[in-house]
Design a protein around this nucleic acid. Structure first.
Lengths: 334, 334
DNA sequence: ATGAAAGCGCTAACAA
DNA sequence: TTGTTAGCGCTTTCAT
């Protein structure tokens, strides 16, 4: 900047004015400065500016998700990015793999870099470690999971109702022997989906004893084996509700292996790629990660723009997509 | 930092020493500073430090890919992130949607933020716009596509050979009426895959006239329609090579719609989610985005560590995954 | 082992 | 319209 000033024969302050598009610069000066800047291909250093600037914004967002290599998180990421670009913000992303330790480290890495806002899918039991950062004024918005121990905005799917609706769908097709395949119940979303499942059974007057609940299925292989065991058992379920992405895939594999994919109903929570190309197509209760990401980004920017209303919880509905597997009727003799 | 110094009764320089883990600080002083820092929950500002520091590194990488919401790019992203974390680097990601204008903007947004290195999937015809940044010493590594008009490291799949091997696989199963479904030939990878396809035909002595080449298929719908047209034509192909992800999906849909998925062979370039759950399973020539990302990150760090050898081009092999669709034999009467 | 002074590249506040 | 001075939070250099 000093060099530009010298070359243009003005003071640094004038260059600063030009760079920041401040008014009250004579057209002739403006031109001289501009051409000097171009000649030296000058790029202003935003970090240096921020040091002195009053708002002290880095125009940077931190996004913490399960993994950047994961369709659900990718869709959120994309939506956040699209919102950020319009405001001149860049996005840091970090994969947590549902590891609470990694979460604190990653948050620290971002706050040290002075991100202006944080969007995160937490997997810690509680997030009071964010207190200092929140007090400092950084907007924090939770996605997919609600915070515990701290008051922040959250954007989540309607897990309980979505699960209940999926369950009702199976019941409506005549099923009574349902299996619920779920992730670790400690994971907030998993707990809510289970609750939705049970409530739907209760409301339909189906004894809970008629359903099998298998949990702690944190990956595809485990889910597959669990369902294989059920299918090989004395009273295999006539319908399966797989409460998560990877579990759905494991369930698909198990059904195929036993050749039961045409007579056992299946609904998965969260959509799965190419689900419509399977035979039968896989019925799912789809989430809307793009909406979740977009809304979360909007919340962050609203907070940055001065919104200091109480923490909000925003729920995004889920959508049933019928593709065949969920519409398989219960066998008539049941 | 000044506050910490006051509270600990030392000078700022001493606090600086403690924060940076420099030696020659008396244990007692160290303890006083540490507790003062903890009490004020002090976070050093890396940007301020960089201003004066000799190396001037932001410990930040810029990653430019087609879209963060895309499995291939996601895998690259994850590999880059994993490599970056170990070195204390954070990663900015930006989606380009194969838009050359967006590319220049995004690069500018990152260089303005003083990223220490750049990893990008370019879609511009040539990348000389990166010249100034490269001259400034920023390592730039291309992934998936080679650079034009500038000498930089590149990590790419062996597109031509992969496509040739896929084609040979189809020929080995007796097919002679092959269809090539490709993306816009202007896209570098698309051009190479086409070349590989044609070379394999040539080497097998199959007249190119026996093959149908359809290009400019930039999305699923267009690909589907193109194949439907071929299937409905007078001499439908007995084998299809779909040279890209989305095209493979479009082709799958078309084959299913016409009920030809069990007698028409199909190999796709690039793996597809749940390909093994289809019926038949989808044979693909898989790329290794995780290796590509990892190697690219290693190149960046090697450059940052002072490697000033000439620009390298690193080729990552592709892997044939046989799942059924590619092994369908040609009808005997052909 | 510790500190004082200067300065990184920029902007705020005020002056001319 | 333009320039001057001070200072953001830190690290460098050189003293002590």
């Amino acid at each position: 900047m000093r060099q530009v000033a010298e070359r243009a024969g003005v003071s640094v302050k004038t260059v600063s004015r030009v760079v920041n598009g401040e008014p009250s610069v004579a057209p002739a000066t403006l031109r001289r400065v501009l051409s000097a800047a171009a000649a030296l291909d000058f790029q202003p250093d935003p970090h240096a500016g921020n040091l002195r600037r009053s708002d002290r914004r880095t125009r940077t967002l931190g996004l913490l998700i399960s993994s950047v290599d994961n369709p659900f998180a990718g869709a959120i990421h994309r939506a956040v990015e699209d919102a950020a670009i319009g405001r001149g913000f860049a996005v840091f992303a970090s994969s947590l793999d549902d590891d609470p330790e990694r979460e604190e480290e990653a948050v620290a890495a971002f706050t040290r870099r002075r991100v202006d806002g944080l969007i995160l899918t937490t997997s810690a039991q509680e997030q009071s470690y964010l207190e200092p950062e929140v007090r400092r004024g950084t907007p924090v918005v939770f996605v997919d999971r609600r915070p515990t121990g701290i008051a922040c905005d959250a954007v989540v799917s309607d897990n309980a109702e979505g699960a209940a609706a999926a369950t009702r769908h199976l019941l409506a097709h005549g099923h009574r022997r349902l299996a619920y395949l779920g992730d670790r119940p400690a994971i907030q979303t998993a707990g809510e989906r289970r609750r939705g499942f049970l409530e739907a059974l209760g409301q339909a007057g189906v004894p809970v004893g008629d359903a099998v609940i298998v949990e702690d299925l944190h990956d595809e292989t485990v889910a597959r084996k669990a369902l294989l065991r059920l299918l090989d058992g004395p009273e295999p379920p006539t319908a399966v509700f797989s409460a998560q992405n990877l579990i759905t895939i494991g369930a698909l594999r198990a059904l195929r292996e036993r050749g039961r994919h045409r007579d056992t109903a299946l609904i998965g929570f969260d959509d799965v790629a190419l689900a419509d190309l399977m035979d039968p197509g896989v019925t799912v209760m789809a989430q809307h990660p793009d909406d979740i990401g977009r809304i979360a980004a909007e919340r962050v920017f609203a907070r940055l723009d001065g919104d200091d209303s109480p923490a909000q919880r925003i729920t995004v509905d889920t959508t049933l997509i019928e593709r065949g597997s969920g519409e398989i009727p219960a066998p008539s003799n049941t």
